[in-house]
Design a binder for these strands. Structure first.
Length: 365
DNA sequence: AATGCGGGGAG
DNA sequence: CTCCCAGCATT
């Protein structure tokens, strides 16, 4: 490819050094490596998008226990899928995973279409790198990946200037990634490049002294390998404020409403939100019988990647819901249903549990 | 080409 | 606190 930097090593030499390192220092006991099926690799790859291995492992085990097969996932309610994703973030991943399972059932005979990168990429939530990872690890056929670990390693080895989010930089990195991809041991090689970036060529404090590529690494030669990759241009994160209504009925249950199917916290269940107390009052007037406001709880901040949300929880009790509310549920904190909850909502609800009048015997004080 | 989309680990 | 991670979809 025209815009590929000069490789730091011939492909064969690079592969040999990397696989030798992997055999001794790589990870060989991740949950999705045994048994290794296309379905398990797929789920793991989706969970691992923008999420670290140590966080994913427990989610993966719970997810597989509940959805052991592609068919089990396809036939499950979306609420159940989102419930098992609660706390992982980027919930579009879970919605796309669920949808893709249903497409695989209907159009591909219940199997992932691993014929090619293109057929996999046609499924929602699978991009070029994830498609390559699934093919390489589950079929052993040649396919390249370019995740954050590979980007970091390649930018350092070749001293690639510019933020990798720039399409021109990304094209160069894809060219290198494909150049180095071998024709044998694809599953091992794929795991190896990810392990190399995750455990040796780390974001900070890379272990250059024991790196098998230190003699050819251009960033190391320059003296400051951690300067690569060039970091994303940062912009000030705006702050928004919201009031979250914690409406409770005489049984102590909490009123939840489902968010729109896409966008922020899409499909998750959340507390009714308001920008102003006057809007909350109007809502109570329209939708509840005999509302009684209590003192607002302390505000707290939830930070997203692109803004901060200052949340003020407002407890209110009422006799009943009177208006016609669509897609709402009374959530019993003592017998929680399997729903997907936004992280701060889950936190608020879990704080409520000990204070609820519980008909079942509990610890005495 | 730029932006939206979560939550948590690491320093 | 800040940075950014096993990315992808949408505009």
């Amino acid at each position: 490819m025209a815009d590929m930097p000069t490789p730091c090593l011939p492909a064969e030499e690079f592969q040999h050094r990397l696989l030798t390192w992997f055999d001794k220092h790589g990870r060989h006991d991740l949950p999705w490596q045994s048994p290794r099926s296309a379905y398990r690799v797929w789920v793991s790859e989706i969970m691992l998008q923008q999420t670290q291995v140590t966080t994913v492992i427990s989610y993966f085990e719970r997810f597989m226990a509940r959805f052991p097969t592609l068919e089990a996932l396809a036939t499950a309610p979306q609420d159940d899928v989102l419930h098992h994703w609660t706390g992982l973030g980027y919930y579009a991943r879970a919605r796309n995973l669920h949808k893709a399972a249903q497409v695989a059932m209907e159009e591909h005979g219940g199997e992932l279409p691993t014929e090619s990168v293109e057929t996999l990429m046609a499924l929602p939530g699978i991009g070029r790198s994830t498609a390559g990872a699934i093919i390489a690890q589950s079929t052993g056929r040649q396919a390249a990946i370019l995740d954050g670990n590979v980007k970091r390693s390649l930018t350092r080895l070749h001293a690639v200037a510019g933020w990798p989010g720039k399409p021109a930089v990304e094209r160069s990195l894809w060219a290198l990634a494909e150049y180095f991809t071998p024709t044998t041991r694809l599953a091992d090689y794929t795991q190896a490049v990810m392990d190399f970036g995750a455990t040796l060529c780390k974001r900070s404090n890379p272990d250059c002294s024991i790196c098998p590529f230190s003699d050819v690494c251009r960033a190391y030669a320059q003296g400051e390998p951690q300067r690569y990759p060039v970091s994303k241009p940062k912009k000030a994160t705006p702050t928004r404020e919201t009031i979250m209504l914690m409406l409770r009925d005489p049984q102590g249950r909490v009123w939840l409403e489902q968010r729109p199917p896409s966008g922020l916290w899409g499909g998750l269940w959340s507390l009714p939100q308001f920008e102003r107390h006057s809007e909350l009052n109007d809502w109570l007037e329209d939708n509840t019988k005999a509302p009684e406001r209590h003192a607002a709880l302390p505000s707290f901040t939830h930070t997203f990647s692109h803004f901060k949300l200052v949340i003020t929880p407002q407890p209110v009790t009422c006799e009943r819901i009177s208006g016609v509310r669509e897609s709402g549920v009374w959530y019993d904190v003592n017998h929680p249903p399997a729903l997907g909850l936004a992280a701060p909502v889950k936190s608020l609800l879990s704080q409520l549990a000990p204070f609820t009048l519980d008909p079942t015997p509990g610890p005495s004080y």
